[in-house]
Amino acid sequence: MAQLLKAAAYLLLLCVITVQAADLVFSKVTLTLSEDDRVFVDAQLKYQLNETATEALENGVPLTFEMRIQMRDADAWVWEKDIVEYRLRSVLRYRPLSALYEVRDLSGGAKQVFATRISALRYMGRISDLAIVNRDKLDLNKEYLVRLEAYLDVEALPLPMRPKAYLSSDWDIEAEPWEWRLKP
């Protein structure tokens, strides 16, 4: 119980959000301050590919998703630089020979295969213990804005598909941005 309380004391904030039906949904996001004063992010992004994207995937078109995590001064102007910015890019691809779904992490280079699309998407949507910033780098008197975005990178599609993708809402696959005000 005491450990739980201590953990709760370290917990700066915890947010669980559920957004209405969309292609991508942040089903759970957690910000945690560890004992060594580092802020961690845990998140679960739920992918719901529409028919167009699924068809493209099954026909061998690789789909690139990007999750962007940024932290900035809440009062900062638009042109001011972010304090923290992470771009986690993953490519989902179907391998017809093995009938497996391959997930490749473009940030780290790791590659995972999955027998089903659902398990591959679940794997892609999971962010565990991602340390984004040290507390000592933050001004304790300021308020910060943490923002998570996730979307399909249309620019990574094969070029012939892009003109249609620019015009079609089927390819406008993105999550409702998640924002949280953080006071260290």
């Binding site: 061998g60 078109v61 012939p160 003109p163 249609k164």
Partner: peptide, 17 residues
């Protein structure tokens, strides 16, 4: 096979482009 399948899928898109 993947390349062929992908191009076959993108036939309409290629024409459009």
């Amino acid at each position: 096979y993947e390349i062929y399948k992908e191009r076959a899928y993108m036939r309409g898109s290629i024409k459009f482009s």
